Computed example of a mutant assay.
Amino acid sequence: MVSRTTADAKGDVVVLLIGMRINRFWAVHLWLPVLLAMVRMLRELGKDPGRGLRAKVLLTASPRTYYVVQYWESKEKLYAYATAPDAFHHKAWAALNRKERGGKLRGEVGIWHETYVVPEGSYEAIYGDMPPVGLAAAHGQVPLERRGRSAKDRFAYRSRKEPAAEQAG
């Protein structure tokens, strides 16, 4: 393992933060299905890399708050998964909406998500004696010197896109 590395991301980076908060622990029958649905969606995405999920990090913010940091290939692939009728997300979201409209959730569980499309030049990463995690797990890891030793240098890095004629050559 190289001791100091950075993520090998090129172009825009798509990050989805998604989670849940257990508002009432005793309502296990209402919040446990939400938690298990996230596990099932992550398993489904893991089995089909073509859907666009590149990496994920599962986190616990407190005994009642759980979330996942997800790194996606593109916002288009994220939207495609979220709206695909054949994906489990579609079924889970419909069931959750039915429970909310029917008043069955009554605040026992909260859900949230935030999506960010981060343009190249607006992110940087450094890892010391770490296996690939986060952005490096999503895009690969390179020695720090390839992108610059300082954060300023890494922010200034731009991937070089080869012209189509050179790629075909």
Rank of each mutant, 00 (worst) to 15 (best):
V118C: 04
A37I: 03
P49V: 03
T65D: 09
K91H: 14
L105Q: 01
L42H: 14
F155E: 03
D153I: 01
L42M: 15
Q141S: 09
P33T: 05
A55E: 04
K10H: 15
D12V: 03
V13H: 05
L96C: 05
L17I: 13
G46K: 11
A151M: 09
S62D: 06
D129L: 11
Y157L: 06
I22P: 01
E108R: 13
Y157W: 14
R154H: 00
R54C: 10
S150C: 03
A84Q: 08
D48C: 10
P49D: 04
A156T: 00
Q70C: 15
Y127M: 05
P163L: 10
M1G: 14
A164I: 12
E108Q: 09
V57Y: 11
K77A: 02
V68S: 15
V69S: 07
S159A: 15
A84M: 06
R149A: 04
W72K: 10
R160G: 12
G52V: 00
H139S: 10
A94K: 15
E76R: 07
K10L: 15
S122Q: 12
P49Q: 05
R106C: 07
W72C: 08
K161C: 12
Q141I: 00
R158Y: 00
T5K: 00
E73D: 13
G11M: 12
Y67F: 15
L59T: 06
R54A: 09
G107V: 03
S159T: 09
R160W: 14
L36N: 07
V142I: 08
F88Q: 10
G52E: 01
R146G: 04
G110W: 06
A95T: 08
V57G: 12
R158G: 00
L45Q: 06
R98W: 12
G128I: 11
V133R: 13
V34H: 07
H90N: 11
R154D: 00
R24K: 15
A92P: 05
D12R: 12
D48N: 14
S159D: 14
E114I: 06
E120F: 11
G148K: 00
D48F: 10
A87L: 03
N97R: 15
M1D: 06
V14C: 12
E114T: 05
P143H: 07
E145Y: 13
G107H: 06
L135I: 03
L32D: 02
Y71G: 04
L105Y: 01
K47W: 14
Y116Q: 10
A87I: 04
A156Y: 02
R154N: 00
D8A: 15
A136R: 02
R40I: 02
G140H: 06
R40M: 08
L135A: 02
A164T: 03
R51C: 07
P85T: 13
A80Q: 01
